[in-house]
Amino acid sequence: MQSITTFFQTLIDGVLIGGVYAVISIGLSLVFGVMHIVNFAHAEFLMLGMFIAWFAWAYAGIDPMLGAFIALIITFFIGMGMQRVLIKPIIGAPQVAQIFLTVGLLFAMENGALLLFGADFRSVSTSYQTQALTLFSGESGRILVPLDKLYAFLMALLSGASLWFFLNRTSWGRAMRATSQDPMAAKLMGINTDKMYMIAFGLGVGTTAFGGAVILPYITASPTVGSQFVVLMFTAVVLGGLGSVAGAVVGGIMVGLIQSFSALILPIQLQNLTLFVIFILVLALKPEGLTARRRS
């Protein structure tokens, strides 16, 4: 039997892709946590990040792992502007209006990208794309770590850790958390909540764009690429608990693991069915997410 190597290979694959799901979901969770808005257009920023990194690679030869920082900065400012113009007016509006504003934004962004960038599929070629580390090789098979996924995973860890540091160890981060818990009180304490909302949205879409850029070595950029990720993102965020940044990390890695282990038992075709069933069950049994602690 090759079961031990198969098991570890599946585990590694699941964790590596899960780390990426984690980083793209963190931003979505942050936006919900601070503004209580579910942003259906969020995956479009992943697409934007991929295109920015692609252009940086194609015209300046910048590796996507570095291009990710450019993507982060550009989308951060785009996000701040969008928050100001589009999201701010609907904070506190009925949920239906919030949902469908972001759905409209999704259509506009996806097709805006088609107008701007064209329908071509954009892909980078880097040296590490076809390389893998061999962790183990023996009678029972091999355990491989693909380099492109390893790099993306490490970059995801880096951005997650930075965001955690920002939220928990800086005064702006504290102000942001205060805004999310009680905007009125935060305002009374002299926090500029409007500014906090803008920064939170900018950071939220920025980290997702960053996540898009680091997966460019193995996912092709196209205007519709966001739709590949939108349901995965929501699943990760819900599994971890809507609004919890740490939860999004756990949720992302869980989604990765569910997908890869589901493929061992069931046909690969059904990997997302497994995911949806778990998703609905988690929502039903523990809507605050699997990582939520009891509030006192």
Partner: peptide, 11 residues
């Protein structure tokens, strides 16, 4: 893509 874009914007 323009028609779908316009649709989103109008929404």
């Amino acid at each position: 893509g323009l028609s779908q874009f316009a649709y989103g914007v109008i929404l």
